[in-house]
Structure formats: structure tokens, C-alpha cells
Design a protein around this nucleic acid. Structure first.
Length: 560
RNA sequence: GCGCCGCUAGCUCAAUUGGCAGAGCAUCCGGCUCUUAACCGGCAGGUUCGGGGUUCAAGUCCCUGGCGGCGCACCA
């Protein structure tokens, strides 16, 4: 994204004068530059692998040759009359050797070239759809005849000609004119094996998208899921809002935040771990139904299910309780499934799962009683007795944990991964739910549920705590835990308490992990497969002091 | 963060017990007017992830660092 790097975009070939291209500015052929290294030394991106250098040098030479012939290799604009997909849809099955007489102008990236003497086949790809150009030399105008010999796989190309079907029945455009739209300098991965190196796929997603159809499938599915979630919420009268990602104090979840610093304010800020508190302040302000779909950031471990930045949907609705939110959750998940798959029946890890509403509802306590075969188990039990039950099931415990935390640990260790079909697990202990309202009839628990599907948590919701005095006590308990060393515990958020003191109506709130929902629907095992550019360790910087490969040449182009 | 596995040509992968670093595709040169993993002939392409060690000899064994994958831990 360095727009300043194009000081003279699409410079027209100057009449009479020699072709000049910006690349020359950082080449060392200026008089007096005692640069003796070969072509390789001028490419800041090439580490020293000479075959790649050779390919890039060859293609740069083609750029120069094209400019010398008056062809702009990076033109300003092109106007196709149809996409490749539209053309395929318009001519679903032409008979072999049909000349339709219809003209079409198409464009795409060249993914294959087959030269058979005076006949060339070029395969264009656009938005994942391929179309062949059937290019007998005799059909091309003079400029296109010169151009076609300089084309490479990876170039962007436009073609203007007749829609035909070849002898074998392959739908094709037979161009009279070829227009180079952008000359690619780097080779594409193997046309047959594609790009399978996972690191390369994540670091160079653009390459993954060019050659791997599955990458495109996943991200198109993701887009449909996002749209479906928005449409469902919009139809229900929710307003989409955007609240800060820079927070003066982290809140809304128990997690370790990223810290950053604002210079003019001379203040530390935290990347948000959840939008929750701001969204509830909007409810306090009288916005009846709001939602936000965007990133949150947690400075914790990374895994196949955890990226440091991830997308969450949070929604809040005045007057609602968690039973209302369950109904909303069912509608959102089943609608997302319909949008993604055309059905509420999904396959995950080779196993079916039905996402059709309604979903099973069962309390956390019931599940733990069942799993431990202890019908007497209860939040009122002595913690020592609960610890013993944990010990019997090899569940790790810590001294500071109360009954609620211990029961939750049992649930997470013994039950959660066994819940395959969508299940609302209800009524989490107060101790582990600092922002949820106490249950209307069970004092030890809150009105909170998590939605478990295929053994994993996908949503977390509750009847919100709206009593400011209760909230202050919960915050203070969290602050004590933090002082005692719990790095994830919350701090007292006075701005939020002030909003609550203004009066928060009864409110039902929901959070859905969007990446995980997409993982489920796309049936992929790694969260990095549903995030276009997942967080990776930075690539190692180039060796300092390595002549000719430092940042100097690249920076030199960036202009003022 | 811990454990296990991986890293060889632009891409996908080989390389016997430690014994001359190879193939296919792509590139480059030549041929070919119905191909679609086009075909035929030829040339070239290597810091075997980096550094160190053992050895007559290291892609291979040892140490160390880098990056990635998987599992565990934590969370969504």
C-alpha cells in the first residue's frame, strides 16, 4: 500500500524519445555508480536465488521491449463487456465448432498458455472462473501478434473478439485484439500442484487465491455468512454501530490486552478485548437494539482456534432476557448456515451436524451432575468436596477457586467437547460471570448461556446485569482478583458504572465468535484458513549492511 | 510458553548405510493451426532455512538459532 511509489503512473510512451520507466531510477546504470553486481543485486526482494532473479529479469526485459514498441504494460483502464462467469452462463453448451458471430470483451489473469505454432491457447481466470482464448495468429491484428509472444502466465490480459466453440466444444473467445492489462514479474506456482506450503499460503494469500480454488471458496462463504448475520439483525430492527477499538481501560471480557501508546495524549491505550461495555452504554443512551461486527484483540496464546485479532458479533437488545437471545441466536446461526451452504445441515470433520432450530437447552449443573454421576453435586457444596470430585476426574484445581469455578472446570474438562449438536448450556456461576445478571430464582448462578456446537463454544450471552450497585461489587471482586495476581481479571470501569447509574433497561446481550462459525460452516480445522491474513511471526529482516539489498532502493521510490 | 514433526531449484517432490544434489512442471532456445496437466527436441537453473561442530567425505549425524505445522496449556 504505498501509493506514493507511483510518481508517474502509466506514463504514456513519449513520442520519439526512448522509453523511460520508473524502475530505472533505482538501477545502478547512472554514470559514476560503481555498482558492479549483476541484475540480482538490484532486486530488493530476491535473497540471492538466481533462478527467480533470472525469471524476473527476463520479464522486466519484456516490459522494456513492450514500452519500446509503444505498448504500455500498465495501462490506466479497461472496459470488459462481460465477466468470464457471465459469458459462461450465457453460452452454457455450444456445439463444437460454433461461430456465434457475437462479440465480447473479456479480461482476466493468464493461468495457462499453450503455443502450437501459429495457434495459441490462453486461459484467463477471473473471480475463480476460467475461460479459454482461442488465438489463431491469422485472426489477430498486428499489434496483438507482437504482444502474444511476450505474454507470460501471471499477466493480466484483455481480449476483444468473437465468442466461439472450438473443435472439442470448449467455449472460447477468438480475439482480434489482445490488450495487456498488467505485466506480472513473478512466476505463478506450479499449475498442477498449486501452492501447498502453508506458510506461503498464509503469508502470500494473494498467491493462494490465484491458484487454490478452496481458498476462494472459504472466503466467499465467509462473506455470505457476514451478510446473513447483518440481514437477520437489520430485519429485526438492530442498528449497526462502531465503537472504539482503542480503550483507556480494557473491559467487557476476562483476557489479556495489547497495550499501545498515544503520543499526543501521552496516554497508554488498550486494543479492545470486547466491545461489550460501549455497546451497553448505547442501550443506556436509549438505542433499543444495537450490534457490532468487528475485530477484538487478545494478547494470548495462538492456536488452530485462536488468532490474536478475531471477529466477534455482539448484539444488545433492550427489555430482552437470555431466553429471547437464545431465539435470536438460533435464527442467526441457522440463517448463516442457509446462506453458506443452502441448508441447515452441515458437515464438520466428517460428521453431520444439524443447525436447524430449536437447539437443546440444558443447565451447566445438570450436565456436570450427569458427567460425574453425582446427582447431589451443587454450588452449595463445600469447595473441599468439589475439589475431591475434580481430583477424581483428573481436573486441575487451584486453591483460590470457589465452588462456581470448580464446577465450571468440571464442565469444561468433562462435558464441553462431548456436545456435538447445537446446545445452549445455561446458568453459569456468578463467580465466573462478572457482567451477567443473577438468575431470577437461583442465587448461585447467572442468566447466562453458551452455545456449544461440534464440541466447541461458538456464542456467549446473558441477561445483562443492570443493577449498578451489584455491578460495582462485581468489579471490585475482579479488582481484588487482579491484585492477587490474576492477569485476566477486570478493573473497575467508572465510565461504565456512570452509564449504568443513568439507568440501563433490562437487556439481553449476545456474542458470537464469527471466525469459529465460519470454520464450522466451511468445515476447516484451522482458524488461519478463515482469516485472509492471519497473524504470523514477522519474516526475518534482511541482513543489515548487505550491499544492494537494503531498504534504500525501495525507499528511494517513495517520493516526497 | 512446552513437546513432536517439517524446511532441498520459482512450484511440487526425490536423494540407499554419511559417498558425484536429481525429477516433473515453470523459465530460456528450437519445432508445431483445435489444445486443455498439449506434445517433440535442446540448454540452463542449488547458500539443501542460517550459524557452528564431527568426519577423508554431511541434504543426511551432533549443537545452536530462525520460520512453519500439529498437539498441550489459555481463551472466543
Amino acid at each position: 500500500m504505498r501509493s506514493a511509489a507511483e510518481p508517474a503512473p502509466a506514463a504514456p510512451p513519449s513520442p520519439g524519445g526512448p522509453p523511460v520507466h520508473p524502475d530505472d531510477n533505482d538501477r545502478s546504470d547512472a554514470p559514476g555508480a560503481a555498482q558492479t553486481s549483476d541484475e540480482a543485486g538490484t532486486d530488493p526482494a530476491a535473497g540471492g536465488s538466481s533462478k527467480l532473479d533470472e525469471i524476473i529479469a527476463t520479464r522486466r526485459a519484456k516490459v522494456a521491449e513492450l514500452r519500446a514498441a509503444g505498448v504500455e504494460p500498465y495501462p490506466v483502464r479497461f472496459a470488459p463487456t462481460s465477466t468470464l462467469a457471465e459469458l459462461r452462463a450465457r453460452y452454457p453448451d455450444l456445439d463444437p465448432q460454433t461461430d456465434t458471430g457475437d462479440a465480447a470483451t473479456v479480461a482476466g489473469r493468464i493461468v495457462s498458455i499453450r503455443r502450437l505454432g501459429k495457434l495459441t491457447f490462453v486461459v484467463l481466470r477471473e473471480d475463480g472462473v476460467d475461460l479459454q482464448l482461442f488465438c489463431p495468429r491469422a485472426a489477430l491484428d498486428e499489434a496483438s501478434r507482437a504482444l502474444i509472444g511476450l505474454l507470460d502466465v501471471g499477466d493480466w490480459l484483455g481480449a476483444d473478439g468473437e465468442v466461439v466453440a472450438t473443435k472439442t466444444g470448449e467455449l472460447s473467445v477468438k480475439p482480434a485484439t489482445l490488450t495487456l492489462l498488467s505485466k506480472g514479474l513473478r512466476p505463478l506456482p506450479d499449475k498442477w500442484h498449486g501452492l501447498s506450503d502453508t506458510e506461503a499460503r498464509f503469508r502470500q494469500r494473494e498467491l493462494d487465491l490465484v491458484v487454490n480454488a478452496d481458498a476462494r471458496r472459504v472466503f466467499e462463504l465467509r462473506s455470505r455468512v457476514l451478510k446473513a448475520l447483518r440481514v437477520e439483525l437489520d430485519e429485526r430492527g438492530y442498528v449497526e454501530v462502531e465503537t472504539p477499538m482503542l480503550h483507556p481501560i480494557p473491559g467487557g471480557a476476562t483476557a489479556r490486552p495489547f497495550v499501545t501508546h498515544h503520543n499526543a495524549l501521552d496516554a497508554d491505550l488498550y486494543l479492545r478485548i470486547a466491545p461489550e461495555l460501549y455497546l451497553k452504554r448505547l442501550i443506556a443512551g436509549g438505542m433499543r437494539r444495537v450490534y457490532e461486527i468487528n475485530r477484538s484483540f487478545r494478547n494470548e496464546g495462538m492456536s488452530t482456534r485462536h488468532n490474536p485479532e478475531f471477529t466477534m458479533l455482539e448484539s444488545y437488545e433492550a427489555y430482552a432476557d437470555y431466553h429471547d437471545v437464545m431465539e435470536l441466536t438460533e435464527a442467526l446461526v441457522s440463517r448463516a448456515a442457509e446462506a453458506a451452504l443452502g441448508t441447515t445441515s452441515a458437515t464438520s470433520q466428517g460428521r453431520e451436524v444439524s443447525l436447524a432450530a430449536p437447539y437443546r437447552r440444558v443447565t451447566l449443573l445438570e450436565l456436570v451432575r450427569e458427567a460425574t454421576d453425582r446427582p447431589d453435586l451443587d454450588y452449595a457444596m463445600e469447595p473441599a468436596a468439589l475439589r475431591e470430585i475434580c481430583h477424581d476426574h483428573d481436573v486441575h484445581v487451584e486453591d483460590a477457586w470457589g465452588a462456581g469455578k470448580l464446577v465450571l472446570e468440571l464442565y469444561e474438562a468433562l462435558v464441553e467437547h462431548t456436545l456435538w449438536e447445537p446446545t445452549f448450556v445455561l446458568d453459569y456461576p456468578v463467580e465466573v460471570s462478572p457482567l451477567a445478571r443473577r438468575h431470577r430464582s437461583e442465587p448461585e448462578v447467572t442468566e447466562r448461556f453458551e452455545l456449544i456446537m461440534v464440541g466447541r463454544e461458538h456464542a456467549n450471552a446473558f441477561t445483562e446485569l443492570i443493577d449498578p450497585a451489584d455491578q460495582r461489587e462485581r468489579f471490585e471482586a475482579q479488582a481484588r482478583a487482579k491484585a492477587a495476581g490474576d492477569e485476566e481479571a477486570m478493573v473497575v470501569d467508572e465510565a461504565y458504572l456512570r452509564a449504568m447509574e443513568l439507568g440501563l433497561p433490562p437487556t439481553g446481550g449476545l456474542g458470537i465468535g464469527v471466525d469459529r462459525l465460519v470454520m464450522l460452516l466451511a468445515d476447516v480445522a484451522n482458524i488461519r484458513d478463515v482469516i485472509l491474513f492471519p497473524t504470523l511471526r514477522p519474516e526475518r529482516a534482511q541482513e543489515p549492511g548487505d550491499p544492494g539489498t537494503g531498504p534504500g532502493t525501495a525507499e528511494g521510490q517513495t517520493g516526497p
